[in-house]
């Protein structure tokens, strides 16, 4: 890793992907991905639709397990531990690796109960009021909702809902937060608030964000991975990793021609 990255110490790898391929039944979605996610940095996954960036994201918390016919070849490890080893309980894993989805999806419950849901699942013994307040403060939502914690989460605006979802993910005190196009359903001002929030969150969490918005990737991330799709001999489409480097390099002096074309808006 080059010395001009912002963090002072050489960063530890949280999630290591080694030559991973992902299949849904006979369909190969991703091929030969090797990618190291550094600790407490923001890694952006960019690329055209269908390149498999969301698929890869969902491999990290094993959410793809719910999809019929899903399987992964190669190795994905979390702090050195094979994620797909038989002794790994995906339910436990998802407490360590939280997720924020594309569309804000608060539970049809009060704001308070939305946040308390995760901790209650494991019988959290501490002060719940305190945890709710802390999580809401960390997600920069506290001031807007502190007087209406009993209100339904669905009554909030889209941007507030998404920050509620972030607070909900934080409340279980994860290590990594996966974000699947978290701003694609939001207006520009809400988007900006979430982007500011990401800079705060990376002090404590490792963040991986999938985004269609190249400006967003260049604004918020430390590392960027560019994915592309190619046609296979049989006419199928398979995603692969083209280039992975510091965000600055990807956007200013990429090695690959297709990266250059994509980040300059030539296709995608």
């Amino acid at each position: 890793m080059s010395s001009d990255t912002k963090s002072s110490s050489p960063t530890e790898t949280v999630l290591k992907t080694e030559n991973a391929s992902v299949y849904y039944g006979n369909f190969r979605a991703l091929q030969g991905i090797s990618l190291d996610i550094p600790k407490q940095q923001i890694t952006a996954l960019i690329g055209p639709s269908g390149c498999g960036k969301s698929t890869l994201l969902r491999c990290y918390n094993r959410l793809n397990d719910l999809v019929k016919g899903f399987r992964v070849e190669g190795k994905i490890s979390y702090h050195g531990q094979d994620l797909y080893a038989p002794e790994i309980d995906p339910v436990e894993l998802r407490r360590r690796i939280g997720m924020v989805f594309q569309k804000p999806n608060p539970f049809p419950k009060s704001i308070y109960d939305n946040i308390a849901f995760g901790p209650r699942l494991v019988g959290y013994k501490g002060d719940m009021d305190d945890l709710v307040e802390r999580s809401l403060k960390q997600s920069a939502l506290w001031d807007e909702v502190k007087d209406k914690l009993k209100q339904n989460g669905a009554a909030l605006s889209g941007g507030q809902q998404q920050r509620l979802c972030i607070a909900r993910a934080i409340a279980v005190q994860p290590d990594v937060i996966l974000m699947d196009e978290p701003c694609s359903a939001l207006d520009p001002i809400s988007t900006l608030r979430i982007e500011d929030l990401l800079q705060e969150l990376k002090q404590h969490y490792t963040i991986i964000i999938v985004t269609h918005n190249m400006q967003q990737a260049s604004r918020v991330s430390d590392m960027t991975a560019f994915f592309n799709v190619e046609m296979t001999e049989k006419g199928g489409r398979v995603g692969h990793l083209v280039e992975y480097s510091e965000t600055q390099r990807i956007f200013q002096s990429p090695t690959e021609k297709s990266t250059q074309e994509y980040v300059s808006g030539r296709f995608g």
Partner: peptide, 27 residues
């Protein structure tokens, strides 16, 4: 009940049983 609510619960480390009985059924 929308599927993304189920995914949200699973994503927070809920088992399928917890997802159904704490989120989907009440909704």
């Amino acid at each position: 009940v929308p599927n993304d609510v189920r995914q949200a619960a699973i994503g927070l480390g809920a088992t399928q049983f917890q997802t159904v009985f704490r989120i989907v059924l009440p909704a």
